[in-house]
């Protein structure tokens, strides 16, 4: 293993790459241990998919930093010859687009059936808007995409609001203790992650120019909330094995 490889995968961002790799290993181990019917249950399958997908694209990001030629050729494929060192295309596709859709699907699985149609429409509108903005050149895939991020984050926050309204109105939720529901902790983590990402997306580049220390603190908040969300998802996968701590989801 070369030094560059170790740096790209482990030492460049050790506070992020090592915890998420560990979470993935724990997640895979727990998921294997789950009974068959639980593995097919969307409340455990989807958090597992999100966990695997998030760790996969973070490692792919590390790989693009290790294999510069690969990154450069993908950038060239998307028409970006000006900034060959950027791997924003990966972040845009994985986190801002596919990630948003996966989180919306996760929220959808916890809300009452008639509200699920709203989330279906939101996913459809999000996909169409993202494609239009990208193909029209308004927000190229290889540059920062604030509009797509803002639409996605707003939809996720709206989805979380739908969940919380169900939590305080639906009899199935009212019969349960929210602190014993993994969905409650997932929504709380998601709501914090996306709210604080707003500030990061607006102010990060500016802060790095004028006050790099504060910029890095702000970025760390986003990173730690990302780890926290993945940790909550890992615990959600493990929840059937912890019946004394967590209750069954009503939907």
């Amino acid at each position: 293993m070369s030094d560059r490889f170790i740096e790209a995968f482990f030492t460049a961002y050790p506070q992020y790459s090592i915890p998420i790799d560990l979470l993935l290993l724990i997640g895979i181990f727990i998921f294997i241990k789950l009974p068959k019917e639980k593995k097919r249950n969307i409340h455990f399958l989807l958090p597992f998919v999100i966990l695997c997908f998030s760790v996969f694209y973070q490692n792919l990001g590390s790989y693009t930093n290790y294999n510069y030629e690969f990154k450069k050729s993908v950038n060239a494929y998307f028409g970006n010859t000006e900034y060959p060192k950027f791997n924003l295309w990966l972040f845009n596709i994985a986190e801002r687009q596919v990630g948003t859709i996966l989180y919306l699907m996760l929220i959808k699985s916890y809300i009452r059936p008639f509200k699920r149609k709203i989330i279906n429409w939101m996913i459809f509108i999000f996909i169409v808007t993202a494609l239009v903005l990208q193909f029209s050149g308004i927000e190229p895939i290889y540059l920062n995409q604030p509009i797509i991020f803002a639409i996605g984050a707003n939809m996720i926050l709206f989805g979380c609001a739908l969940y919380f309204t169900d939590l305080i109105t639906h009899p199935s939720y009212l019969n349960r203790n929210p602190l014993r529901l993994t969905s409650f902790w997932q929504m709380t983590a998601i709501i914090f992650m996306f709210t604080l990402s707003y500030i990061s997306s607006v102010a990060l580049i500016y802060l790095y120019e004028v006050n790099p220390v504060l910029g890095s603190v702000l970025q760390s908040i986003g990173i730690y909330l990302g780890i926290l969300t993945l940790a909550v998802l890992t615990i959600s996968i493990a929840s059937p094995l912890l019946p004394n701590i967590f209750d069954k989801e009503p939907f």
Binding site: F192, Y198, I199, L207, L214, L218
Partner: peptide
């Protein structure tokens, strides 16, 4: 910078 710090704390 203060606005950013305040906004972060406020939103949190």
């Amino acid at each position: 910078i203060y606005v950013i710090i305040f906004s972060t704390l406020f939103l949190g």
